[in-house]
Design a protein around this nucleic acid. Structure first.
Lengths: 330, 330
DNA sequence: GTGAAAGCGCTAACAA
DNA sequence: TTGTTAGCGCTTTCAC
């Protein structure tokens, strides 16, 4: 691989002149620049990114860290952050936190291979985030509340979401409501559940433990826990799935069990994933403002990168999307 | 930010000893190592990734380059590559080629910020790929045929796919078939169209230019071109959308136009995206072996990284997924 | 087992 | 305008 040294030698100029010429510095004469560029072309020269970053100690890149790159849920979020990054002429890379402590994500965070990060990955521990974040390395955290230097929180009001979903069911006359939950350690799930409880208590409704099942936020989990609920005999009149993926799995289980949605049982989800609109019946759900929150996260990150001070906590509102999976109880 | 130098000083050892101690080299005594580790802890030391990469001239990272990170289509592909990377204990980052020449993707490729790449991004030009690829920087290209040192091709048999889809329609008795195409410059689209033409010619069927419309591979495009087709009056008995996204858009247009699928018009797609199964009616389509091709691409990349020689061309077979959007012509 | 020193490829301050 | 040179932070050879 040719280095800038080779280029300089071939062009018959000093190292620095070659460097200046290639970065378009105005102090090199047009003639010299052309000579250098020609030499670079001949040698098929490509600058070494690391050397540059090392020298500059800036990468012009931010990272988006997700639990699982292949998850289809985040596409709007990614898009919004991509837009912000692009308009700030920063590069964006996405990396997965699969692998926990040894993941790509953690290395990027700890070894400062980027200038800042947006994190939405519950398997990255608070300790790592706290160790990584600083005023010189801002991190926007979107999946939990955590306070530390350089960390700022952008979250969606999950409690209100859980409350609204439950309230909506109650207003439709439902009294027996099941809650299919996400993973026990999930902050998001905890919030949604808290909202669920608040609405239930407020309405003087009883929450049955046999109708609280764990679906781990995945489709398969929603399917299995619904099957289990079916086997228990008595059915609730409505089910609140703590996310849409589980609702999709659950509706499949219901269908297989010959239970019609929404005639015999009402279903509400959470997230408003793309599928929600297309599934049969279209799923009533709580929409998370993905684009907005991603956009906000991105803007905040760049403000911090520019040395501006910003608040360290932002909470976004949710919105109920009424479709056809909920019917008033007869 | 503390450097290894600070750590060494605090621990009272030489720079190199500190380095050895932290990388777990066996020649440092346990006592010295402990001293160093303690100092590192005190200083909250984190190694600088770039300096390491620069020195090592290896990054242990591969990149997956996609046109648009937010596209939901690739989730299986990403998953498979993620799996392979993880099992080779390599890091994987995903970056977008949005922004063309100035995109993150191009910088990563040209500046060798990773050890190798898998590319599925039609807006990266052949020239860039050819300039970037070499035996020391392998690239697996999945969206076109291109020969150059260090480049290997993994493609899906799009021509056969286009042929099979069309053939299937013809066997169901359809004679008037529209083709909604992808972007003009898309290699994938060209292939699918070629297959379409072959099947039509073979069957002695005439291809009408008014039934060849461009939908740009996006949902909106499928919607618009279908609207346009509707306005033209005469309808084909079947439509071959060159990808599922366009089919989704198209089916919406058809529904709005009061045309029933599949009773009045049959529809076939290409890709087998997740939605295909859930849309009404479920979409008959050509499945691309996403997981398999991603897995293959990953394995090949690592073989090249290990210095093995591999063939430079692989073609994977497609598969027709029969659902309910096609009916025999009455 | 430990330390001194070279150098990865680049940028930028300084000198000429 | 051009050239010389000092590092950026790290790994690794080589001498002790």
């Amino acid at each position: 691989m040719a280095t800038i040294k080779d280029v300089a030698k071939l062009a018959g100029v000093a190292l620095s002149t070659a460097s200046y010429a290639m970065s378009g510095d105005s102090k090199v004469s047009a003639k010299t620049r052309e000579k250098v560029l020609e030499a670079a072309r001949q040698l098929n020269y490509q600058k070494n990114g690391f050397a540059m970053d090392l020298k500059r100690s800036r990468t012009n890149t931010i990272a988006l860290i997700l639990t699982d790159l292949s998850g289809p849920y985040y596409s709007e979020l990614i898009r919004s952050i991509q837009d912000v990054a692009l308009s700030n002429s920063y590069d964006l890379i996405a990396c997965s936190s699969m692998g926990g402590k040894d993941s790509t994500a953690v290395r990027f965070l700890l070894e400062k291979r980027v200038d800042g990060a947006i994190v939405l990955a519950h398997n990255i521990t608070d300790e790592i985030l706290q160790a990584a974040g600083s005023s010189r390395f801002p991190i926007v955290v979107m999946d939990r509340l955590i306070a530390s230097e350089g960390l700022i929180n952008v979250v969606v009001d999950g409690e209100l979401g859980g409350y609204s979903a439950t309230r909506y069911l109650i207003e439709k006359g439902h009294e027996h409501i099941a809650y299919i939950s996400g993973p026990a350690n999930s902050y998001d799930n905890a919030l949604r559940y808290k909202g669920f409880q608040r609405a239930m208590q407020e309405a003087g409704l009883e929450e049955k433990t046999k109708w609280k099942l764990n679906g781990g936020f995945i489709r398969e989990g929603g399917y299995k826990s619904t099957k289990m609920m079916l086997m228990q005999g008595e059915l609730p009149s409505a089910v609140f799935y703590a996310n849409d993926e589980m609702a999709v799995g659950g509706m499949k289980a219901l269908e297989e069990g010959g239970i019609s949605v929404p005639d015999e049982i009402s279903v509400i989800g959470f997230d408003d994933i793309q599928l929600a609109e297309y599934i049969q019946p279209p799923l009533t759900t709580i929409r998370q403002p993905m684009y907005e929150s991603g956009s906000l996260a991105g803007h905040l990150l760049f403000q911090m990168l520019n040395g501006d001070t910003v608040n360290d906590f932002y909470k976004l509102k949710i919105e109920l999307v009424e479709r056809q999976s909920v019917l008033p109880r007869k």
